[in-house]
C-alpha cells in the first residue's frame, strides 16, 4: 500500500470523525428552537454540546488542512470550484461559533431568541450543504484537463445533489435528536425521544431514495457491481434498526446505529470515489486522483508520521472529554452557556 492510499484512508477517517461529531452538533442546533420551550430548556439543549462543539469542528479544519497538505490539487480545485457554496458555508460557521458563545451572555429575551435562530439557520445550512458537496464529488463536476472547475454555483445545484443534501440534513438531525436523548433528562428527554421517533422515517426514506437515485446518477454502485458490497448494507441496516430500537427505548443503541450509518455511508462514498478524489463529468481521464492531485512522496511521508502520532492522541483526549461531561443535563443543572 503506498502513501497516497494511506492518506486517502486518513482523510476518509477525518471526514468520518467530522460527520459523526459535527453531525449531532448540527442536529442539536437545528432542533434547538423546537425542543426547548423556555429559555432554561434551550440553554440545557445548547449545553449538551457546549464543551464539545468547538473541538468537533476542528475535525473539519483538520480534514481541510490535510487535503491541502496531502492533495493540494484537490484542495485547490474544490475550494476554488465550489466557491459560492463555501462562502455560504463559511458565513454559517462564523455565525454559529459566535452564537454558541454569545447567546447566554446577556439577559435579554430578544437577544437570546435571535441567537437561537442564528444557531438554527447556521446549523441547517452546513448540514444540507455537506450532502450537496459530497453528491457533487461523486456525481462529477465539469473539470477540464488542467484540473480547473469550469462550472458555476448552479452546476452544483442539481436534483441529485439536492436529494443528497436533504438526506444528510435528515440524518444529522436524527443523529442530533438521539444524542440529545442521551444527554437530557425529564421533560426534555421525552421531547428528544419523541422527535427522534418522528425523524426516523423521513430520514430513512430520504437516505434510501438517495442511494437508489445514485444508481442512475453516478458510477458508484456499478463500480461495486450488482452486489453493493458490505459497507452500504451495514449503513442501511443500521438505519433501519433505529426504528425498532426507538420503539423499545434503547436510545444508546439507536445512537450507535446512526453513528454506524454515518460512518459506513462515508466509507461507501470514499470507496466509490477511489482512486479518484473528484470526478470530472467532462472526461474520466480528467478526474483528480490520489496520484495526480497528491503531494510529493516526501511530504506524504512527513505528514504520515505526524498523523500517526497525533490522531490517536487527539482521539484519546476527546473521548476523555465525553467521559468528563457524561452527566445528563436538565433545566436544573448548572449551565455555562
Amino acid at each position: 500500500m503506498d502513501l497516497n492510499i494511506i492518506w486517502f484512508i486518513l482523510i476518509t477517517i477525518l471526514f468520518i470523525g467530522f460527520f459523526f461529531l459535527e453531525g449531532f452538533d448540527y442536529g442539536v442546533g437545528i432542533l434547538l428552537p423546537f425542543l426547548g420551550k423556555d429559555d432554561r430548556s434551550r440553554r440545557a439543549v445548547i449545553n449538551t454540546i457546549g464543551p464539545h462543539w468547538d473541538g468537533n469542528e476542528v475535525w473539519l479544519l483538520t480534514a481541510g488542512g490535510a487535503s491541502f497538505a496531502a492533495f493540494p490539487n484537490w484542495y485547490a480545485t474544490m475550494f476554488s470550484g465550489f466557491y459560492l457554496a463555501l462562502v455560504v458555508m463559511l458565513l454559517a460557521l462564523i455565525a454559529r461559533g459566535v452564537a454558541f458563545e454569545y447567546r447566554s451572555k446577556k439577559e435579554d429575551k430578544v437577544w437570546r431568541t435571535r441567537w437561537d435562530w442564528v444557531i438554527f439557520i447556521s446549523s441547517f445550512i452546513p448540514a444540507l450543504l455537506w450532502g450537496v458537496a459530497i453528491s457533487n464529488l461523486i456525481r462529477g463536476v465539469p473539470i477540464d484537463e488542467n484540473m480547473n472547475f469550469t462550472g458555476n454555483f448552479f452546476t452544483l445545484l442539481n436534483p441529485y445533489s439536492l436529494v443528497g443534501g436533504l438526506a444528510s440534513l435528515a440524518l444529522f438531525t436524527l443523529h442530533g435528536a438521539l444524542f440529545l436523548s442521551l444527554k437530557l433528562t425529564d421533560e426534555l428527554l421525552d421531547n428528544a425521544r419523541k422527535t427522534a421517533k418522528k425523524l426516523w422515517l423521513p430520514a430513512t426514506v430520504l437516505l434510501f431514495a438517495y442511494v437508489i437515485y445514485g444508481y442512475f446518477e453516478t458510477d458508484m454502485f456499478s463500480k461495486l457491481g450488482v452486489n453493493p458490497g458490505v459497507t452500504p448494507i451495514i449503513a442501511g441496516a443500521a438505519l433501519l434498526s433505529v426504528g425498532y430500537l426507538l420503539k423499545i427505548q434503547k436510545e444508546g443503541w439507536a445512537f450507535i446505529m446512526t453513528a454506524l450509518t454515518i460512518t459506513f455511508s462515508t466509507i461507501t462514498v470514499f470507496i466509490g470515489l477511489f482512486p479518484r478524489v473528484m470526478v470530472s463529468s467532462l472526461n474520466p481521464d480528467w478526474s483528480l486522483t490520489i496520484y495526480n492531485a497528491s503531494s510529493s512522496p516526501y511530504t506524504l511521508q512527513v505528514m504520515s508520521i505526524v498523523a500517526l502520532i497525533f490522531v490517536p492522541i487527539v482521539l484519546g483526549y476527546q473521548i476523555w472529554t465525553y467521559w468528563v461531561f457524561r452527566k445528563r443535563l436538565s433545566t436544573k443543572s448548572k449551565l455555562e452557556y
Partner: peptide
C-alpha cells in the same frame, strides 16, 4: 506551494488547534 505550505497548516490543526479547542471546552465547563 501546497506540497510545502499545506503541511504546517495541517499540523497546526492536528497538533495545536485540536488541543486549544478541546481543552477550552474542558476549562469553561469543568
Amino acid at each position: 506551494m501546497g506540497d510545502i505550505f499545506g503541511a504546517p497548516l495541517a499540523i497546526e490543526a492536528l497538533l495545536a488547534f485540536f488541543m486549544e479547542s478541546t481543552f477550552l471546552g474542558v476549562w469553561v465547563f469543568g
